[in-house]
């Protein structure tokens, strides 16, 4: 069952569009799929969107219910597709963007492609009114930059059709109430350090709130009784005493590391809390013997009130 010691109060309601982000390897795909699954079970319908080759979604959503739609957005075709209304027709968009000069520019500057993908994401949400749409974002670093791209494009262009596309993305998709950000992280010092920076960027540069901070694979607190017993036994000057000292050392390392993690989490919540989403959105998921399925994660999220 989820460890609820970090969860304070009720979670804020998630917006219709949910961007699930976090470093690679933190279990982001499973959390995204778990959220989509929980929404499908609650509302009858939901959408899970991923970018690229659909490998992640297929792995975690093996027995997907019929109400859960799985959409894959292909970044390589996004620009021309998204730009078609700007240029008036697919033919003109192809003429303007698929030529000797623009092809290398688009290849060299992925932001152009990201803007295209974001426009397609806006369309997915617009085409599924009333449904929860969960986006499994690519691994951090790039993914938050991705959310900023509409605002940057809007500021950069000032006016004109590209400006209007950016403005529509910002108004309809990347704004509080329209979209929630769910940050997934691990209870490791180094990873948490980056999570802190990520939450900052989401709030200051993207202008969205982090509505959930999901900490995956949180180990159980080591038994305090065992630590005390081992410490007592380690005073015996024999082989068993030496062994007990080793056990005491291991348990105290685990206790310290866990405390560091909880402190770092509290720091994140404190810095971003103060009435904002994260304060209420801290969700700790347990360590499991093997990779949990989306269904298991959906159960955990529901039990924590975070679905």
């Amino acid at each position: 069952m989820p460890t609820n010691e970090g969860t304070s109060g009720a979670h804020v309601q998630l917006a219709p569009a949910v961007f699930v982000t976090g470093k690679g390897g933190v279990g982001k795909t499973t959390v995204a799929a778990g959220l989509a699954l929980a929404a499908a079970e609650a509302d009858g319908e939901s959408v899970y969107v991923e970018f690229g080759d659909a490998a992640g979604g297929r792995r975690v959503l093996r027995n997907r219910p019929s109400g859960l739609e799985h959409i894959t957005l292909d970044p390589s075709r996004a620009v021309v597709k998204a730009a078609t209304p700007v240029f008036g027709s697919a033919r003109l968009a192809k003429l303007a963007l698929d030529n000797f000069a623009m092809r290398p520019l688009i290849r060299a500057a992925p932001a152009i492609r990201e803007l295209g993908v974001l426009e397609l994401a806006r369309q997915v949400v617009a085409e599924h009114p009333g449904k929860r749409v969960v986006f499994d974002m690519p691994a951090t670093g790039h993914s938050v930059a991705w959310l900023k791209v509409a605002r940057q494009g809007r500021e950069l262009t000032g006016k004109g059709p590209v400006h209007d596309v950016c403005a529509r993305i910002e108004d309809e998709l990347v704004s509080p109430g329209r979209a929630s950000v769910v940050v997934v992280t691990l209870p490791e010092r180094l990873v948490l350090f980056e999570t802190l920076a990520l939450c900052d960027t989401v709030e200051k540069e993207v202008g969205l709130l982090v509505d959930r901070l999901v900490v995956n694979r949180v180990p159980q607190a080591p038994s305090a009784a065992a630590l005390a017993d081992a410490a007592a036994l380690s005073k015996t000057p024999d082989r068993v005493g030496e062994a007990a000292a080793k056990l005491a050392e291991l348990l105290s390392v685990r206790t310290t590391v866990r405390e560091q993690v909880i402190n770092a989490l509290n720091e994140t919540v404190h810095r971003h809390g103060e009435g904002k989403g994260v304060e209420k959105g801290l969700t700790l998921l347990p360590m499991a013997a093997k990779d949990p399925t989306a269904a298991t994660v959906a159960d955990w999220l529901r039990a924590a009130g975070a679905a």
Binding site: L92, T157, G158, K159, G160, H163
Partner: peptide, 8 residues
């Protein structure tokens, strides 16, 4: 086409 799309 591009100049019109991009604006200033």
């Amino acid at each position: 086409l591009l100049v019109r799309a991009l604006g200033p």
